[in-house]
Design a protein around this nucleic acid. Sequence first.
DNA 1: ACCCCTTTGAAGGCG
DNA 2: CGCCTTCAAAGGGGT
Length: 350
Amino acid sequence: MVGKPPVQDRNAGPFGYGMPSYPPYSNGSPGLGSKFQPPLAGLMMYNNDHFAQPPPAHMGIPPVHIDPKSGLPRPPVYPYPGSGQFPPSLYGPDIPVQWQRPPGYPITSGAFSGPYPPSLSSSSFRFGPPGLFHPHHGLHHPGMPHPALMSPGPKQEPQDNHRNMHDQGPPEETAAQKKKNHIKKPLNAFMLFMKEQRAKVVAECTLKESAAINQILGRKWHALDRSEQAKYYEMARKEKELHLQLYPGWSARDNYAVHTKKKRKKKDIHGGEKGCSPISHKMKLMWPKDGQESYSPQDMWVSDCSSAKKCRARYGVEQQNQWCKPCRSSLEQTSDPTADIKQSNSPEVQ
DNA sequence: ACCCCTTTGAAGGCG
DNA sequence: CGCCTTCAAAGGGGT
């Protein structure tokens, strides 16, 4: 807990595992890098009581979730207490607490029903750890087949999924098959947060573009207090543990460049034009000024290519030692404290 | 049909 | 060890 995080946890959250200020877990779990292997039944209990007791009886065995896109199952996640709704403290000052899932909004994305990567193969589930998942249990929407219960797609040989990811796989394997066999990364804390909160933000905002929504979600993520973020870090830790159990040999490396094109853009962007993407020109998130706690989604957008230095927004001018280099250097270049809000192409820690 | 955008975090690789 | 890159989700927009 205290001291340097394990190697594999070097990217733990800002106050996350291994960080000195991180709140202790109720079970004393050492963190992301722990070899601690809790009973699988308790793996997906994503709430404050997740270590103290098993899920409520009505929840039964966590449902197997299947991603609607790939048709592959993903490990179940217990909905947050309160049927998918989040405690008021998670809501930003501009988001009403009484938010409900918008009519017609897929429960899969808004209700936190299945943050686990859709990569988890049906074969792995069928032949995975015994007693882990039971396809007949579930909390899925009755009118809309829960992703977990959807067809896993073409028949797959048990454990083919994993094997193909590491071995060469059949040479005649089609791209579609490869895609379906793709084991995705477990979701990190922010991804879990995003998956859950996206629908609420979308409902609150006229904007529908995910890029814009994600900017808001990024703000809200930073607006969360530690305890709230800690929930998501804990969830992510469990996601990772479960993923590890399901795919012991899986490596994130397996997913590199599986989708043909390599992403060179980021490198290029870092060279200069990040923040000036087409979408950024169209509507760029205006970050609140220092000390400004809230923002209005309606007036968050400006029509030019301007975004604040995120480090400044995140840490404030008083804690410049926390800033990333580009943000620091950009401040040195200008004495105008608001200049970074007016013009920002600075690369951000990525 | 596919890629981009945008966010944070995790992980792998390289020098 | 520090830095860089890629990939997780999402879906509108662009090509």
